[in-house]
Amino acid sequence: MSFSQTDLVNALRQLSDRLPEFSEQQVRTGRLLRVTTERLSSHLNENLKTFGINENLWFALMAVYVSPKSEILPSRLSDLMDLTRTSATRLSDEMVERGWVGRHINQQDRRQIVLKLTQEGESFIQQVWPQISSKSGEAWEDFTNEDYTQLQNLLGKLLNRLDS
């Protein structure tokens, strides 16, 4: 892969010359966002591969970990991760198989199943987190708090518009 921002700009300029009302800014931003997202995902997955997991499984485990009492409904997991119920069930199954979470009956509504973090799951997180945090931080080290705030506001604005 040899993505080049210069090649992208040149191609978009050519499109702009040929297509009326073509928005170079919009398309360039969208492409940069997509390439950056894919690279961030690849970077994280490469670091997680050492532990035999991928980012979806890691984020699912972290979602259980940060939930009140380290318990979460599978439907809530699906919503938090923006996944289909089927995908959330697959991740839940894998976390159960690995011994990181257990399935329990919800005491408030006995019709519901709750995923609860196990001690093995917490130990795994404690083992993985320092290494992942350190390696992920390298990609973001040039960002200031102001940069984070600005980027989060802009991405939130775009996401809100896409959801409306």
Rank of each mutant, 00 (worst) to 15 (best):
V101Y: 00
L32T: 01
Y65D: 09
E94P: 01
E55H: 10
S92D: 03
L91F: 10
R111Y: 13
Q107V: 11
S41M: 09
W58M: 04
G102L: 07
V96K: 09
R110I: 12
M81G: 09
L44C: 09
A88I: 11
D109P: 00
R39G: 01
L80F: 04
D82C: 10
A88N: 06
A63R: 03
N56K: 10
L61G: 01
V114T: 12
V96F: 02
N106C: 12
S92E: 09
D109M: 03
N56L: 12
W58L: 06
V114D: 00
Q107F: 10
Q107A: 05
N45K: 02
P68F: 02
S70P: 07
V96L: 05
Q112W: 02
N47V: 08
A60R: 03
R85L: 14
A63V: 03
L77K: 09
S75V: 09
D93N: 15
T37I: 09
T89W: 08
T89S: 15
T86F: 09
F59W: 12
D79T: 15
A60H: 06
R76G: 07
L40V: 12
Q107E: 10
R76S: 15
S42F: 14
R98F: 12
L91A: 07
R111C: 03
V64T: 04
L32E: 14
H43P: 02
L32S: 02
D79L: 07
S78I: 08
I53M: 08
P74L: 02
E94I: 05
E46G: 04
S67L: 02
H43I: 14
E94K: 12
R34F: 15
A60T: 03
S67V: 09
F59P: 00
V66Q: 05
L40Y: 03
N54L: 03
M81R: 10
V35F: 02
T89V: 07
L115T: 05
A88H: 06
D109E: 08
S41P: 00
K49Q: 13
V96H: 05
R76T: 15
G52L: 08
L83C: 08
R111A: 14
L57P: 01
S42E: 12
L83S: 09
S87D: 15
T37R: 07
P68R: 10
Q107Y: 12
R76I: 14
I72L: 11
H104Y: 11
V96S: 08
R34D: 11
D93C: 04
T37F: 05
N47R: 11
R98K: 13
N47Q: 14
F51W: 14
V35M: 03
S70T: 08
G52S: 07
G99Q: 04
K49R: 14
I53P: 00
